[in-house]
Design a protein around this nucleic acid. Structure first.
Lengths: 217, 217
DNA sequence: GCCGGGCTTTACGCTGGCTTTACGTTTCGG
DNA sequence: CCGAAACGTAAAGCCAGCGTAAAGCCCGGC
C-alpha cells in the first residue's frame, strides 16, 4: 500500500511516516501543498494523508485541486480544530475522511486501511474466437477451458490476430506490431512463432495461412 | 455481556465462571480448543478468555483459527509463563490482551470490561488464495494453518499479488506499490524479496514467474 | 555505544525464449 | 509435370532475464 503524508511539521511527518512504514506501508512525505500535488501527479497513491494547516498552499486548496484529476486518491484530512463545522467543511471540500489532532496512531492506521479499500477493477479486455478465450490484462489464454502457457511473442501474435477478427494480417504487420523497431525485415522468426503458436493451440487448426498475404483466424 | 471461558482445568474454569456471573456476565465454558471454536462459530461473544495451555488443540491454534472468521471476538489470553517473549508471541498471534497466571480476579474482570468496551477490531480485508490466508490489518499470514513470519517488504509484495488476484504484476508495479520514492528503478531487490517470500511460503510453489512480464499467484 | 535483523547491492550461473540456419513441403502458374 | 516462390519444420546458438548466494549497509532496539 502506497501512502503520501503531507505535513509541514517535520517532526510529526517523520513520526507518522515511521509508524506507517512499520505497518508495511510504502510512505512518501511532502512538506507543502505544491510538492504534494507534484507527488500525486507522478505516483498512484492508495491514500493521501493531508494536514489541513499548510503554509503557502492550504490543505483545502490541495483537496480542491485533486478533483480535477482523472483518478483522485482518497484523502484523509488531519486538522487541529475538532469542531463539527470543520468536519463538515472538510468533507464538503472533497476529503474522504477526517481525523482531528491529536489522534491515536492506531486510529490513523485503521482509517487509512479503510480508505484504501478501493473497488476491484473489473477484468479488462477479453477477446474470444470460438472456444478460445484471451484475457489481455491478465495475460491468460484458454482453449476448451484448458489454460495455455504462451510466450510473449506468441501472445502478441495471437492478440493481433484476435483483434483483426478474421481479417488477414501480413507478416510485415505482425513484425511491426509485435516486434520492436529494429527487427530484421527479412527474418524468419514470425513463421517460427506462428508454428509454435499453432502447436500450442492444438487441434482443430485455428490459424489459417493465406498464401502471399498473411494469416487469419 | 457474553463471555466464553476456555480452560481445561475444571476447578479453575468453574471458579472463573462463577465469579464472572456474579459480575452480571453471561458465561459459557469450553474445556478444549475444538469445543471453543464450535462455540465461537455459533455465538457472538463480546470477549473470549483463552487459556494458552490446552490439551489437543493449543490455545495458539485457536487464536490463529479465529483469523478466518468474519467477525472474530476479542481474545484475552491466560498463560502460566509470564515472560516478555510470551507476551509478544501472544499478541502477534492475534490475542488482544494477555494475563499471566496467577492473576487477581479483579484484574481479569477489568481487562474483560476493557476489551468489550474497545471498538471491534476492524476485521480488515482478509485475502485468501488456496490454503494461504492473509489478514491485512493484523499483518498476519498463514498457510495450511501454519503461521508465517514475513518482513514488511515480503508482506507488501504478497498483498499486491493477492489483490491482483491472478493477474500478472510487473516488477516495476511492485516497486511502485511496495517501495517508496527513494527506490532505485534498476535495483534487483524485488527479485531477492520474491525469492525469500517463495522460500517462506514453502511448497507447493505459489508465486509464478511470467518471463518478461512479472509475477502472479 | 553495540548488536541484530532486514534491506540492498554485487556477482555469477543458468534457464528459457528468441533468432538464425538449413532443409523439407506445399502451392500454383506455365 | 516442372520448378520456383512461399511456407513449414527441425535443430542449434545466443543472450536477456531470472534465481541465488554472499557480503555490506543501515536502522531500530537494548
Amino acid at each position: 500500500m502506497r501512502v503520501l503524508v503531507v505535513e509541514d511539521e517535520a517532526a510529526l511527518a517523520d513520526a507518522v511516516a515511521r509508524g506507517l512504514r512499520r505497518e508495511a506501508m510504502a510512505v512518501d512525505v511532502a512538506a507543502d501543498g505544491a510538492s504534494a500535488l507534484e507527488h500525486i501527479r507522478l505516483t498512484r497513491y492508495d491514500v493521501v494523508v493531508l494536514d489541513r494547516d499548510l503554509p503557502e498552499v492550504h490543505g483545502d486548496d490541495v483537496c480542491r485541486s485533486l478533483v480535477e484529476l482523472a483518478e483522485p486518491p482518497p484523502v484523509l484530512m488531519l486538522t487541529a480544530a475538532a469542531s463539527v463545522e470543520d468536519r463538515v467543511d472538510g468533507l464538503s471540500i472533497g476529503a474522504d475522511d477526517y481525523l482531528p489532532k491529536p489522534f491515536a496512531f492506531e486510529e490513523l492506521v485503521a482509517r487509512i486501511r479503510a480508505l484504501a479499500r478501493r473497488p476491484r477493477r473489473a477484468t479488462g479486455v477479453v477477446l474470444t474466437h470460438g472456444d478460445l478465450i484471451m484475457d489481455v490484462t491478465r495475460r491468460f489464454v484458454t482453449r476448451r477451458n484448458r489454460p495455455l502457457s504462451l510466450t510473449r511473442k506468441e501472445l502478441g501474435v495471437l492478440q493481433v490476430l484476435l483483434e483483426a477478427d478474421g481479417a488477414v494480417v501480413s507478416a510485415e504487420d505482425l513484425l511491426e506490431r509485435v516486434w520492436d523497431e529494429h527487427a530484421d525485415p527479412f527474418t524468419n522468426t514470425v513463421r517460427v512463432t506462428v508454428m509454435t503458436l499453432r502447436r500450442k493451440l492444438g487441434p482443430p487448426p485455428m490459424v489459417e495461412t493465406v498464401l502471399g498475404a498473411g494469416y487469419r483466424l
